[in-house]
Design a binder for these strands. Structure first.
Lengths: 228, 228
DNA sequence: CCTTGTGAATATGTTCACAGCA
DNA sequence: TGCTGTGAACATATTCACAAGG
């Protein structure tokens, strides 16, 4: 398979993942979706001081087959050594680079309710590549109050702040009735990816990536398999 | 396909989804996972006062093909009318029954930090089949303080409270270093399904269903497709 | 007409199993 | 020996396309 990141034994290069003639990445999205999980576990192993690991050990930790892990990684290069396995810090570094979290991305948060506060005060973002850089809310009462380390700005300030900070990612943590309007305004302001906590499917242009978090979806999935 | 819920024109029956000889549901898990999304959208349509809808309309709202929706629903029965589509309140009712959210499930919450408060104060659970019935935290400072409508109990009270309330579902909203221990204790106390907000893959027996919410996983998925 | 429900065809994803190298 | 990387085999999921019913 073509080496599309960097050779395990060469120095860093700024190569980029190959993209086919359709402009679409040739790597299945479902594979990309597992990479952050691998990275999360590898960084845990790293903190535990482990120098090397194997696809088998990783698989056991994750409840995934070792073959799947090897094939997923093989899309991006050859990171392991036969007979030995993978060097943990090295693989962390490579995955961080592939996912582009070798630097910190500023994120816009809309909604300064309980959920907004929980997100803004969460300490787990920084060392995984993200920081809440700006917070917006339409409630004048909340204006200028502190949420995490940021201060609440009015919705009207969104376009300018987003452009100044170069934010491409936003999180929507507003009530469901306001979510579509917020999304429209974020996209208008230049946001490219949205993580939506409101329980609604947003209507957005095809070039905007939207992902969703809704605990009720998970709970309802669970109850199907429960009795009573 | 066999009718496994109830005929659209008969009165309610308490039939249950068929299960094959392996003890596993013959319906793909990925299909079950989409049902809550269909239900969420149908209830929105219902609130808008729509009487009927079609697989095509639903598909457009959800960004899913109409064929997929029809095939998914066909696993459970025949809910539509040719030439007309689906009766919205009726399909809501049927999906709620299939997912067993035609009544309210009590959920245990562990962790009374910012996230715990956000969950406990979220008003969107009740009318979708869930309620936060008990809250636990290991911090003695938080003991007996109010979180949503519940009061924080000590971890030691978990087994008794869970058994008394008949809780089968728990949410873990504690720091990552405490999550595995909390999971062990919940399972010990009889919990069957866990929604874990801590960024770690839990080690649990095979008969326990665990799902995860970690915003960073979504953000890292997004950054793969972004530039810079 | 319009829309469902569904086999058949296609597309996608996962696992197997082994050559090859440390 | 122990482990990776990978074609080939298999398994699963999605879409097509159409008969049949209102």
């Amino acid at each position: 398979m073509a080496m599309i990141v960097s050779d395990p034994h060469s120095v860093d290069q700024d190569e980029v993942v190959t993209v086919n003639t359709n402009g679409k990445s040739e790597i299945p999205d479902i594979v990309i979706g597992r990479l952050p999980i691998y990275l999360r576990t590898l960084e845990l192993l790293n903190r535990e001081g482990r120098e090397v690991t194997s696809s088998q050990e990783l698989g056991e930790r994750l409840g995934i087959s070792s073959a799947q892990i090897r094939k997923d990684l093989s899309h991006f290069g050859e990171f392991g050594k036969q007979g030995t396995g993978y060097n943990v810090p090295y693989l962390c570094e490579q995955l961080a680079k592939i996912l582009k979290v070798d630097h910190v991305w500023p994120i816009v948060l809309v909604g300064a309710g309980y959920l907004g506060h929980a997100l803004a005060n969460y300490s787990g973002f920084e060392n995984r590549g993200f920081t809440i850089a700006a917070v917006f809310d339409s409630d004048p009462q909340k204006l200028n109050t502190k949420v995490g380390t940021a201060r609440v700005q009015p919705m009207e300030a969104m376009p300018e702040t987003i452009r100044e900070m170069g934010c491409q990612i936003a999180t929507i943590a507003v009530p469901v009735h306001a979510a579509q309007n917020v999304a429209d305004r974020l996209i208008e302001a230049g946001i490219k990816s949205i993580l939506c906590y409101a329980p609604i499917t947003l209507h957005t242009p095809k070039h905007i990536r939207v992902e969703y978090i809704d605990p009720v979806i998970h709970f309802q999935h669970m109850t199907f398999y429960l009795n009573r």
